[in-house]
Amino acid sequence: MIIMKFLGGLLVLISTSLIGFFYGNQYSNRLNNLVYMEQCIKMLETEIVYGAVPLPEAMLNVYKKGNKKVSFLFKEIRDHIIENKVEEVYYSFYDLRHILKNDLNFKQQDIEIILSLGRVLGTSNREDQGKNFQLILNQIIILEKEAKLERDKNEKMFKSLGVLVGLAIVIILI
């Protein structure tokens, strides 16, 4: 009987700790992905503004060079452009927003900024696109700062909260 109690308590403790751990991890994931995204967008800027490479090729280059955790997005966008022949790149970006939200832990504001990149790409001349790239990069840097603050505040709390709540449940139940 005592073994069953012990086992059950252990299961509760492990599950709540895992929930807390994953919840806390979201914050550092968001920050890391924002940093990778910034690097990818910088690469794309270089490809477009200085290299004058056509968009599908530029996207493929970014996919090859960037961190694969984020840069797979650019490959998806490229495939979408080539397969569907949509009239605006924005639709290809718009198609990816569920990946941005669910897999990369981005918040709504991050997604809006990344989508606004889709509105800019391929719509005007190089100088104009370069300026827009600068704007988007600035916004992403601001979001990174905010994400860092949020992570410092919440990550540790959620991780220890999971363990402690598990302990509390076990103690109350025993």
Partner: peptide, 19 residues
């Protein structure tokens, strides 16, 4: 049991206060 709940609550309180 009550003592352990008390200890746990004090830890939770400090944790949430600091956050």
């Amino acid at each position: 049991k009550i003592a352990s709940i008390g200890i746990l609550l004090s830890i939770l309180h400090t944790l949430l206060d600091n956050a």
